[in-house]
Amino acid sequence: MSTTLSPTRASSTSSTSTGIPQTAAAGGLSFTQPPNTAAPSFYKIAPDNVITFGWNFTSLYSTPTHLTMSAVCSANGNTYPVGPTNGIIDGNARSVTWNPYDYNQIPGVTPLAEASYTLHVWDERGPNVGAQPGLFSPNAQMTFALYKPQSYTPIADGWSCTACSGALGLASNPLSLGLLATTVVMVVSGWHLLRNGFGGQRER
C-alpha cells in the first residue's frame, strides 16, 4: 500500500542565509567591569595603574571575528586605541586591560588628556553598521574619566599650604595679632556691660 506524504510545513520563523532567525534580537554586549549602571569611573594615568573593562555578550547568534575598542575624548575629540594590541582584540574575548600611562610613553602619539571618555566597541563590519538580528551591534554606552595625580613637592622645594598661609601671616605679624586680641576683649566686655545693664533694669 502506498503512502501519500504531505508537504513539510514551513517554519513560522523565517531565517537569514546564515541561519539566524529574522525575529532574533540584535546582538551586543553588557559591561560587567565596571558595571554599566554605575556612575562614570575615574582612573589615574600613573605607572602600573591598569584599567580592566569586562563584558558579557547578549543575543549573539554569530561570534565576531574580532572587536575594535577605542576611547573618544570629550575635551579634544581625539580617538585612542584601547588595549595592548592597538585596540583590536579577539572576538571571543570577555575583557581587555589597558595602561594609559604606558600608552602616553609611546613616541609620536597624542597623549591622553585629563578628561571624560566614551568607550566605543564594534566588530569587523565597522562602527556604523545598523542593528541586525543576532549580530553584534556597535556599543558606546561606557563612559569613564582619566586624571593625573599631583606630584609630591617637599617643603624644601617650595611647597606651601595655601589654607594655612593666612594663619601663619597673622602669627608672624605682632601688630595684627594685637589688634585681633583687642577686638576680642572689646566684644566680650561690651557683651558683659549690656548683660549687666539689662539685668539691673529687671531688678528695679
Rank of each mutant, 00 (worst) to 15 (best):
R9H: 12
H66A: 07
L177N: 09
N86A: 13
F144R: 13
S62P: 08
V188L: 15
F198Y: 13
Q132R: 14
G130E: 05
L180P: 09
V184E: 02
N78P: 05
S62R: 10
F53L: 10
A24F: 08
S151W: 01
G197I: 05
G134K: 03
S165N: 14
S176C: 05
W191R: 14
F144K: 13
G166F: 11
V184R: 10
Q201I: 15
W122Y: 14
Y61I: 05
G28F: 04
Q201V: 14
T118K: 07
T118S: 08
A71D: 01
K148A: 00
G199C: 12
S62A: 10
G87I: 02
I106D: 05
T85P: 09
Q132T: 15
V50F: 00
C161W: 06
T68Q: 10
L112I: 04
Q22Y: 12
P64V: 03
P107W: 03
K44C: 00
S137R: 05
Y101W: 13
L29M: 07
G199T: 14
S17I: 09
E124I: 01
G108A: 12
Y101L: 01
S41Q: 15
Q22F: 14
S137N: 12
I88C: 09
S6R: 14
N99V: 00
T183Y: 03
I155W: 07
P111I: 04
V121R: 06
P127S: 05
G169Y: 07
G126D: 08
D123S: 08
V187C: 15
H120M: 15
I89Y: 05
L194W: 12
L180H: 12
A71I: 02
N104A: 00
A167E: 11
G91F: 00
P40E: 06
S116E: 04
I20A: 02
N92M: 04
F53Y: 11
A75H: 11
A145W: 02
N76D: 15
S12V: 08
G197L: 04
F144G: 08
L60Q: 11
A113W: 09
Y152R: 03
T63P: 01
L179S: 11
N86Y: 11
A75C: 08
I45Q: 01
C164K: 15
P111F: 04
Y61H: 13
L112W: 01
P35I: 04
L170P: 03
F198V: 10
T153S: 06
F53K: 07
V185R: 12
Y101S: 02
F57A: 09
R202C: 04
N104Q: 10
L168D: 01
M142Q: 13
I51Q: 00
Q141W: 02
